[in-house]
Design a protein around this nucleic acid. Structure first.
Length: 473
RNA sequence: GGUCCUAUCGUCUAGAGGCCCAGGACGUUGCCCUCUCAAGGCAAAAACGAGAGUUCAAAUCUCUCUAGGACCA
């Protein structure tokens, strides 16, 4: 499989899987699947201070929840230090890198001097031709960058970008504590893992020429690059915690469906004509870097919520009930798929799902079903539970209690008939009834929910409402 | 500060010289439907950052400026 296409997602486990990382992973995934290639997961945990086991779990769980399957890995950079060491030695022995003994103070003063003389504040290569190697002195290892010429980054998103090599310094590849630097390990790993296409955020664009130097130094082929624009918050700054929820996990907890989040993320920077709603297969079939936008996109929670609503509506009530289970459990509501009232709950979900944009909303809107004693919305009670309604409620109550079959079709004529007979608009009686039965002014169709709740609970709640009004006046 | 990237409705975007007095989607507003709220249907407001040039013709090509962003320090 010499010509196999191989891409990688390489997060640092220093926090949860965030929205931006998820989209980078998604683009990698789609590109790999579209081209029958492989996706490799690599955990860049060289920063031991900030990397945590919990973050690794969060990233893996997040990717799994989104349905982004990888083919190889996870590989951990922390377990590959020997490999990096070997590559440092190689460059050193080939004289493509050198030890630099300049101290922090020296570098700092040279920098300020250069700045004062309006020269570029890059390392002046003092140690590059140094012959003697002072013993016992701390040193870093620097790469010998080309002194002139240009380096071209061929990017599938941004096109050809030309860098002047004079602008780039002899960068450090191994710190004085013996740890390799980011640009170095990335190249070693990408080479070792035979990565053919590097797809990452465009915040790495400026690192790329340095990485190309390293590919050349190792005589390895340079992969194709795709630097995708970042995701911004409303203030156009890179998306961060202060813009609100930015972790994949938090969207899961707020009742978003993974297919909605994936669909939203893919349209942030990628488009396929006027199409807005995509299944995973449609994304895979149509994905290409030809239609990736070059500019950063602002994250818009409203549109995500709308998409989530469309996906919720497409789900069957049975599927939604299953998705609801962890949320029910979290609220200590003892409902399982085998509950005796399972079929009523499914009916209620069917009536409610069209009104919900998240699983949490869906659950909130059905709370009157799970409670024995409902509380009335204050404002609505003041407005709707007036003494003149007592008579209406009592009459309807009488009518309903005389029904043989308590179904939507039998309930409807009772209430509509009463409204017509007493010269009321249907709303005049429906709204107080809705409040009596659900505690709120917004719900699915009144007759439908009456049937679902059943005779006993409906009659009891109307009686309670009557008592409530009488007690208050 | 240096380097690099970017620039179409509030937001995501279509647009690769004439099909564009700029299309779709979210959001917003109005109307219809209606027991409430949604959903659905219909309609409206809303954009080519600025200035030069190239061209018979520019949102689309070139340059300058401006603004935003990223990276390095």
């Amino acid at each position: 499989m010499e010509n196999e296409l191989r891409v990688r997602f390489a997060p640092s486990p220093t926090g949860y899987l965030h929205i931006g990382g998820a989209r980078t992973a998604l683009f990698n995934y789609l590109f790999a699947r579209h081209n029958s290639g492989k996706l490799i997961l690599r955990i860049e945990d060289t920063d031991r201070e900030r990397s945590t086991e919990a973050s690794v779990d969060a990233i893996i769980n997040g990717l799994t929840w989104l349905g982004l399957r990888w083919d190889e890995g996870p590989f951990y950079q922390s377990q590959r230090t020997e490999l990096y060491q070997q590559h440092v030695e190689q460059l050193l022995s080939e004289e493509k890198a050198y030890r630099c003994y300049c101290t922090q103070e020296e570098l700092e003063s040279k920098r300020t001097m250069a700045l004062a003389e309006k020269r570029k504040p890059i390392y002046d290569r003092t140690c590059r031709e140094r012959k003697e190697q002072p013993a016992g002195m701390p040193y870093v290892i620097r790469f010998k960058s080309p002194l002139y010429g240009t380096t071209v980054v061929k990017d599938m998103v941004k096109g050809n970008i030309v860098f002047n090599n004079e602008e780039l310094e002899d960068f450090v590849i191994l710190r004085s504590d013996g740890s390799p630097t980011y640009n170095f390990v990335v190249v070693v790993d990408d080479v070792d893992m035979h990565i053919t296409h590097v797809i990452r955020g465009d915040d790495h664009l400026n690192n790329t020429p340095k990485q190309i130097f390293l590919y050349n130094a190792f005589n390895y082929p340079i992969p194709r690059f795709a630097h995708i624009p970042l995701i911004h918050g409303t203030d156009k700054a890179r998306l961060s915690k202060r813009h609100g929820a930015t972790s994949v996990e938090s969207y899961r907890e707020e009742g978003y469906l993974p297919e909605a989040l994936v669909n939203y993320l893919v349209r942030l920077g990628w488009s396929f004509g006027d199409k807005e709603v995509f299944s995973m297969q449609e994304m895979i079939d149509n994905f290409s870097f030809d239609t990736i936008s070059k500019s950063a996109a602002v994250f818009n929670p409203e549109k995500l919520l709308w998409l989530n609503g469309t996906y919720i509506r497409e789900k069957s009530a049975e599927e939604l009930l299953q998705l609801l289970e962890p949320f029910l459990k979290a609220r200590n509501i003892p409902v399982t798929l085998s509950s005796p009232d399972h079929s009523n709950l499914v009916k209620l979900i069917d009536e409610t799902k069209i009104r919900s944009r998240s699983l949490i909303e869906l659950l909130d809107m059905m709370d009157y079903y799970f409670k024995e004693n409902i509380e009335y919305d204050q404002n609505a009670a003041n407005k709707l539970f007036t003494t003149d309604r007592i008579h209406h409620l009592e009459t309807v109550l009488y009518g309903l209690s005389s029904l043989d079959r308590f179904s939507k079709d039998s309930i409807e004529p009772i209430i509509k008939g009463y409204a017509a007979d007493s010269g009321l608009k249907l709303g005049d009686i429906a709204q107080p009834l809705r409040l009596a039965i659900t505690g709120r002014t917004v719900s699915p169709g009144l007759f439908e929910i009456m049937e679902i709740l059943g005779r006993e609970r409906v009659l009891k709640r109307i009686e309670q409402a009557v008592r409530f009004i009488k007690n208050r006046s």
